[in-house]
Amino acid sequence: MAAEEGKVDPMKQFQVEPLFGSESWEIAGFNIAFTNSALWMAITVVLIWGFVFVGMKRELVPGRWQMAVESFTGFIDDMLEANIGKEGRKYVPYVFSLFMFILFANLLGLVPVGIIPSVHAYTFTSHFTVTGVLAAISFSIVLIVGFWKHGIKFFTLFVPHGTPVVMIPAIFVIELFSFLIRPFSLALRLFVAMMAGHVLLKVLSSFVIDGMNGGIGTSLLVATPSFVLMIAISALEILVAGIQAYVFALLTSLYINDAEHLH
């Protein structure tokens, strides 16, 4: 990337750039340029589709690939059943899409396509505009299901059982705030986790490059340990990619459970 210039800008990887001269595309005055971010979303969708499609042979005795796809759907199904119960089944398509979209996006951002000149990996889950949309969808589902099923009684969610009457106004406000903060925490958690990991990797990579340029001494003292640390942190990032996708899906299912069952 910036290696030719001899230094690495750890923030440049998050730059959104319009592709194919689409910077002036607009709908109703809003810019909808097809950016590198959108391109990686498209790649993510194609990969998820391919993954599920190859596993959709629908054989009685599954092959490895079908087994892999079925274990993903089974994983989401079990999670929803554990957290919501029998009613959770109808949310499997949504939570599965959410989980796979985030998981594939996170993992794709870690694929070292950067070794091909002028190709840059891009992690769209490191943008709060993207994670915010996903969190908003999850939160909307919670609100819609909650008010659809319980009507005005949905507000009893903010008054836990056994609250003394004098405490109700205070508790109600606190619970309401904690409820309203959910979409933000959901969006920020994913965005921050992805961004932090990628910034850390880029900072370490600049240590490696600068250390090697600085001569034998800094190569041994700075570049080599940084490189080893990069490898370790890359492994950790793969773990984080999975965990963040899981946390997003898990919290979504927990919030939906609140909407389905109140307390």
């Binding site: 959104v16 709908i27 950016t35 971010s37 959108a38 979303m41 769209f124 993207v130 949309v133």
Partner: peptide, 12 residues
């Protein structure tokens, strides 16, 4: 970029 990000996220 927010409108493009939101739009393509919704689409994909």
């Amino acid at each position: 970029t927010w409108s493009s990000q939101v739009f393509w996220t919704l689409v994909f």
